[in-house]
Design a binder for these strands. Structure first.
Lengths: 175, 175
DNA sequence: GCTTCTACGTCAACATTCCTGCCTTAATTT
DNA sequence: AAATTAAGGCAGGAATGTTGACGTAGAAGC
């Protein structure tokens, strides 16, 4: 590309660059997600579980005591899809259900010790990748990553990321 | 974790490696990917296409003239999985095949004008999200996002992101 | 208290996307 | 000429998702 000052169509050039950047972002989201999720696949396969099971374990671990309805809203799948996967996890003793105190219709979900142990093993694999990326990129880049990722997600999901167990900023979700 | 001052390894700088931060990254990757891909679903559904078709359109558009084998390597799916999706796209006139010049066994894939038009429509939906996120986060954050995302992906994928059509940095992939 | 709504579970049937294993053809490489 | 590679196809099956309908228990409204 030539000197921007000598380019009469500087605007078009900027638009072009912007589009190339956006397309690169598409690529990166695909590859990052592909390789990040793949990191845990070896362990899952040994146990005859799939990625759907991993997602359920992850989110119950992240938000212990969540209801089935909340889990459905986070995963954005139907009750029927969840039931197969969740049923298997309960059957095999990874997840426990408890009747809600305030609302006894609810089934509050938690990981059993066995479930926590598996979730941790899966987490460690993915953790390696994130830690490597974070360390190489540095804290400023990590803050930028966080800001952009939040911008890509639906607003609704911000609440979940902030309010999940682990309390990133010492504040529990207000609602 | 204990008092950062008592940590000889400059702990304060590495706070972004705490477990809570890594878990938040897991969440964000899930939500960002979920909502980003979802952006194009309305259009796809109208045409009776799925996300697999979108991915194929995207990558052929990104790398016009790529071979079937290259596409398989990028998507990391089997020939059989691709053949159904790719076959449909060719059948409906979104994608064209041409015999390779150097290697006539290869089928080089390109988007037809119809395919380009659809890819652009799908792109525009996703573009909105990225542009919004980039704008809100600022250029420093975007650079950080890029660095972290690259760190999460397999090395192998860097080449593709850099070398895809659109020439982000005016350099065609050397190999 | 009775009716209505809600949370959850389940059955049946099906769509999409992915997989493995095996075989064929044509073209390139050795 | 023989081996390898690129692409395609067939048979069969697994994982994950969907819709629609129905039942039960508990909460909420009148």
């Amino acid at each position: 590309m030539q000197d921007p000052k000598s380019n009469p169509a500087a605007g078009a050039n900027l638009l072009f660059l912007r589009e190339a950047e956006i397309r690169a972002a598409q690529d990166m989201l695909f590859f990052a997600y592909r390789d990040f999720t793949n990191a845990a696949d070896v362990i899952l396969e040994e146990l005859g579980l799939g990625r759907a099971h991993h997602r359920v374990l992850h989110f119950i671990g992240r938000n212990a005591g969540m209801s089935v309805g909340e889990l459905l809203a986070v995963l954005r799948i139907t009750k029927q899809s969840l039931s197969r996967v969740l049923g298997a996890l309960i059957e095999e003793g990874y997840v426990a259900q408890a009747q809600g105190r305030a609302d006894r219709r609810q089934r509050l979900l938690t990981l059993t010790p066995k479930g926590e142990e598996l979730e941790r093993r899966l987490f460690e694999r993915q953790r390696e990748r994130i830690v490597k990326a974070y360390r190489e990129a540095g804290s400023t880049a990590v803050e930028g990553f966080r800001r952009v990722m939040r911008g890509i997600m639906d607003e609704q999901a911000h609440e979940f990321v902030d309010g999940a167990d682990g309390e990133p900023r010492g504040v529990r979700h207000g609602r």
